[in-house]
Every structure is written in structure tokens, then in C-alpha cells.
């Protein structure tokens, strides 16, 4: 390669490396702001501020959803299979909200550890499948005596 071109190529590579390092350090410093939500383990460890509007995210725990028959109030546990947080919400839930599905709730953490949400968003994973396949999976896992779930273990909630 021509020496001038080699020099230019080196400059270009230095430019790229410099920008990559700068952006890398910036996003590393801001990682807590870039994370969309706190997971239950972080909340249990006291990393989330109390009585500040934050988001909490995780999987709705199986069998934990309790609806108030008189109002739109609903209480459920959000878990990351390590810790769980009790969420209270009054309002209409998204269609995809279900036990075993991921959610992101926006609201305030109370001093007693409850999370009072004013918005609940549903999160889905990248495992799309036809209804027949999902039914078959559920039947198979029911036959094995395990709780029926279509989520894979490593799927992020």
C-alpha cells in the first residue's frame, strides 16, 4: 500500500478507536440512567430510591395476581426468579399482561417495600410461535408435572 494511504488509514483507525473509547466510557458512566428499569434484585438490595418515580421490571409471578372485585385495583408480584416485589396498580392492564409474562411498571417505591405503579407496560420476548405449538408445549409440561410455561429459561423478561 502507498505510504500516504497507510498513514491516512492509521489516522482513520485512531479516529474510530478514540470515538469508540469516548462513547464507551460515557455509556458506562451513565449505565444506571440507560437501564430502563430496576429489577427486583436491585430493589431488594436497596439500589432503587424510595418515593422517586422509577420503573421496576420483571416477570409476573405465577399465581400472584389478585384483582379487587370492587375496583380496577390489581396487586401482583414481579420477580426475576431471585427476589420479588409486590406491585399495586389501579387501571387497565395491557392485553399481553398475564402471569408468567414480562412487565415494566412505572411508579414509586414505598418505604414498606411495596411498589405503587401508575403505568404498567407489557414486555414480550423474541420467541414467536404458532398457538398449536404453544398448546402442545403446555400439555407436555403439564404431563411432566411442571408448571405450564412457554417461556424459555434464559429468555429475558
Amino acid at each position: 500500500m502507498h505510504p500516504i494511504r497507510k498513514k491516512r488509514l492509521t489516522i482513520v483507525l485512531f479516529l474510530l478507536a478514540g470515538v469508540a473509547v469516548a462513547v464507551g466510557l460515557t455509556t458506562y458512566a451513565l449505565r444506571q440512567n440507560i437501564n430502563l428499569f430496576y429489577d427486583p434484585t436491585q430493589i431488594a438490595a436497596g439500589e432503587a430510591p424510595v418515593d422517586v418515580r422509577i420503573r421496576a421490571g420483571g416477570m409476573v409471578e405465577e399465581g400472584s395476581v389478585a384483582r379487587d372485585p370492587e375496583s380496577l385495583k390489581v396487586v401482583f408480584n414481579v420477580t426475576d426468579f431471585n427476589q420479588s416485589v409486590t406491585v399495586e396498580y389501579t387501571g387497565i392492564l395491557p392485553d399481553l399482561f398475564a402471569e408468567g409474562q414480562g412487565v415494566v411498571a412505572m411508579g414509586r417505591l414505598q418505604p414498606d417495600g411495596r411498589f405503587v405503579a401508575d403505568q404498567v407496560l407489557a414486555k414480550h420476548d423474541e420467541n414467536y410461535m404458532p398457538p398449536e405449538v404453544s398448546d402442545a408445549l403446555e400439555k407436555a409440561s403439564a404431563a411432566n408435572g411442571k408448571p405450564a410455561t412457554t417461556q424459555t429459561k434464559d429468555a429475558s423478561y
Partner: peptide, 26 residues
């Protein structure tokens, strides 16, 4: 972004190293 941080967006449908998790007719 979907792997480094918590996001609402789900992870990628197509990955370079693995088979897609959806059936072939999708």
C-alpha cells in the same frame, strides 16, 4: 442495547450464531 441494558424492546429475532427461536414458517 437489548443485551447490555434493561430495555422494553425484546432481544433480536435473528442472531448470527444461533438458529432463530421461531418456527421455519415464520
Amino acid at each position: 442495547s437489548v443485551e447490555w441494558w434493561n430495555t422494553l424492546h425484546q432481544p433480536a429475532t435473528f442472531k448470527l450464531t444461533e438458529r432463530p427461536t421461531m418456527p421455519a414458517e415464520m
